[in-house]
């Protein structure tokens, strides 16, 4: 084997790994973003037309629907498995977000349900910033800051009825659009 051939093998392996990890990397974000968007709009409409605050419990439908849906839709794409530091870190950031968002929502559902949407959106923004910094992606980082800071400010100024719409916008800004951008780039 010539040195050129050795170098070619190393180069091909690096390139293939890079492409494998970019391929469909945005799909989980699109799936979760779509679930969040659908539930946010549903909660907003139900609250608006019924006035019954119990519909806030529908937020818990996000993890309940999201986990099985993402497992089913991603099953065919994950036959083999390789992990980079980045893919592992991103996975951990979003699992942590899921845990915190669910626990926080559960607690605030009883204390102050009107803040649940804002707080989970702030956490969403924070997770998006972390994702953007790890990926060195300016759009994702900026989108996270806009969501996190925007929702913090909105806590003081906005009407509670718009909370689900903020969350829907955050899902588009921080999950769906970045996911589509990542898939398009791959």
């Amino acid at each position: 084997m010539t040195p050129e051939k050795s170098l070619q093998i190393i180069n091909d392996a690096i390139e293939k790994s890079r492409k494998d990890f970019e391929k469909d990397a945005g799909t989980p974000m699109i799936i979760w973003g779509s679930v969040v968007l659908i539930f946010s709009v549903a909660v907003w409409m139900l609250l608006k037309f019924t006035g019954n605050q119990s519909w806030n419990f529908l937020w818990f439908g996000i993890p309940v629907a999201g986990w099985p849906l993402s497992s089913i839709l991603l099953r065919g794409k994950c036959r083999s498995e390789g992990k980079t530091f980045i893919s592992r870190t991103l996975g951990q950031i979003w699992v942590t977000y899921g845990v915190f968002a669910t626990v926080l929502s559960a607690v605030f559902a009883f204390i102050a349900p009107q803040f649940t949407g804002y707080l989970t959106a702030v956490l969403l923004g924070f997770s998006a910033v972390m994702t953007g910094l790890v990926l060195k992606n300016t759009y994702v980082t900026a989108g996270g800051f806009i969501t996190g800071l925007g929702c913090t400010v909105a806590l003081f100024f906005s009407q509670n009825e718009f909370v689900p719409l903020f969350f829907a916008a955050a899902a588009i800004l921080n999950l769906i659009v970045p996911g589509m951008m990542m898939n398009k780039r791959a």
Binding site: I14, S17, G82, K83, T84, R88
Partner: peptide
């Protein structure tokens, strides 16, 4: 080895 250098782990 080239694949594993780039990854933390691979199956």
């Amino acid at each position: 080895m080239s694949v594993l250098v780039n990854l933390e782990e691979a199956d």
